[in-house]
Design a protein around this nucleic acid. Structure first.
Lengths: 210, 210, 210, 210
DNA sequence: AATGAATGAGCTTTCATTCAT
DNA sequence: CATGAATGAAAGCTCATTCAT
């Protein structure tokens, strides 16, 4: 039945990857609680039994998602932090950051992590370390360098990094998290970042007599 | 059973309050979805039917929690916004805000709202309207007044209010939300607010020709 | 509170009548099973306890409806059976019959009686005796008279009466009973009766050589 | 438990049939509303979950009953409509029809459908389409053919079919529906059909110049 | 390794009925 | 007599998980 027409039987690891991908879609569409193993199995085209052959519970299946996916975004953001005038670099970085923050995929995972934070803080820690923490560290490093060459002036670069990211995020993120507004449009992102960069430069820009 | 020991029959309102209190404990311990009406009824010492005599659904029972608790916090914050020098007023307001934001009770409720945001945005909307939206409006009003009398100078008071609250909240809130750190201690709150107020005054303080 | 403004306290019988009227409305709107004592009490403006003071169960409340209401329609139909040419009399009677048969009130009560027929055939018997049986007897009496004076010719007047009513009722009644079509419009009633009368006259009309 | 005594594992279809049979018994004993899925599951010796694996709701389980039983009856009736002299064919068909109409099984199902007509007209529609509608259509087709070859003469075959079925059904059906009389005995059926056929032939038989 | 039928505890919600006041 | 809070059984349905094949 399979041998003749199928080009190749999938290896166990490939099957596992497929399951993860399908499960991710369902988790993101419906949320952790609402997503059912039946739904995942059905969309997979397999049986529930198979699911349980690869992951011994729904929780473990979700945990695998987080461990696998969270690092990717921080990677992208850190890469942005390169040479260039502060205004330009911060704008690029901020826009990159907001695009990530306001994506459906990110918010869905974040919602689930928040929901489960009480029961499984380890999951939340994994997320925080590979995601937000790395992003903030990358920005801090850039600010240190800029300060060293006189492009910016601030007493505490870590604090400044935190402030910048807070200004970028803005109030809208709360509404987005609560599913009260759709993702920001590119123009809205640009405006919000422009306001954050402007404030930041006012605070820490060079040459301004303070 | 009734004549000898019962001190007094509880009024309907008292009973309602008791139910709210018990339900709040269960919701906070287990989360909205995991908390069951059976559990709440059992802990109440009554029947499920009774619960439904007071609240016509689980959702309404939770919504009552949100209205009661978040409304109170926004009230407190709004009250702070009175006369006084901006630095002093903003400090008081900011500290009040952080005390609310970093309390166990608030974060528990917020976690539930975020977790359920996809299924019940109406609940989230109620929360947002009675809580954050009113808080931000109160601050905006204060800033308008301060601007009018020359105590502060900013082109957009709503934006400034948003920025101030973002600076107050800070990065630590993300960690708190994810259950990675305990509530801020009073000293930490004071420091964080001092930094936010300082930045805000730098941005929008009087006399700076902008 | 009551003595000063209320013109008169209702007697127990008046209260009972009011309850019956309100209950009837609810039963007819929602059906026996779907109608709840709570709904009836609420619409009554009283409490459920009061309801149970007058009728000791839901079933008894419904039974009282049937006993009170079923006779009325048959009364009306029987009255129609007066003097006149068969064609005219049968047309009047048939239209009267269909108007009753295709009314919302009648069909609702009938549905409930059918539904409960297995559990309470006594109720059904009450209905049948005071309703359909009397109607058919009235028609039979008329046919006997018409036959006696040579206006109609049939071997078995009871059978003829039954056939006439069956022809009047038609297939549409099944659909109406099943809630598949709305009540017949006056024009439809007239057409259906005209067809029934025409067939009946063909069968049993005078002078036609058979 | 499995190896020694189990004769054979039931196939999915067999299990489905068993469920339908058990459910039918419960529905007929208690009526649609009163019958509970728990009762059906218990009598089946299985769990409620199993029931829901085969039928995704109580309504669907009942609908399957309707489709299976009423469709079969209409099939039988339609088959009767073959060649032969009208009198003979109509007699056979009418007797077949009454046997179905006056069976305990049919009346039970019909009572349920009527009772639930307000809440679920879809169910009633299914019943009407697979049962009465097909039956009437079959008869109409036969009448058309008979008219074409001059064996019968009527202006409107659909109307004639309706009239014939109405005459067959008779008044007794109302009493049977209301559980006031037992099913007709074969002799009663034959008499009732003979009267209906006789009237029908008088109305639409050949040679009568109309 | 894959299947998919079976499970059974659990969920939210409804309702006729009772009873102390 | 009226009230309305309280009850508790029962309903339809879901779902993570197991296990024989």
């Amino acid at each position: 039945m399979t041998a003749s027409s199928a080009p190749r039987a999938p290896t166990r690891d490939e099957r596992r990857e497929t399951i993860l991908k399908v499960a991710r879609e369902v988790f993101f569409e419906q949320g952790y609680t609402a997503a059912s193993m039946s739904t995942i199995a059905a969309r997979l085209g397999g049986s529930k039994g198979t699911l349980y052959n690869y992951f011994k519970s729904k929780e473990e299946l979700f945990e695998a998602q987080v461990r696998e996916r969270c690092g990717a975004a921080a990677d992208r953001i850190t890469e942005v932090t390169a040479e260039g005038e502060p205004e330009e670099v911060l704008t690029r970085l901020g826009e990159q950051y907001l695009e990530h923050l306001y994506s459906e995929e990110t918010v869905q995972m974040f919602r689930i992590l928040v929901a489960e934070a009480q029961r499984s803080p380890e999951l939340a820690r994994v997320f925080y370390e590979v995601g937000p923490a790395r992003g903030q560290q990358g920005l801090t490093d850039y600010l240190e360098a800029a300060k060293a060459r006189g492009a910016l002036a601030m007493p505490d670069c870590a604090l400044a990094a935190e402030q910048f990211l807070s200004l970028c995020k803005g109030r809208a993120h709360l509404q987005f998290l609560l599913n009260l507004i759709p993702p920001l449009k590119p123009a809205e992102i640009r405006l919000q970042i422009a306001q954050a960069v402007s404030a930041f430069i006012t605070l820490y820009g060079p040459k301004r007599a303070r």
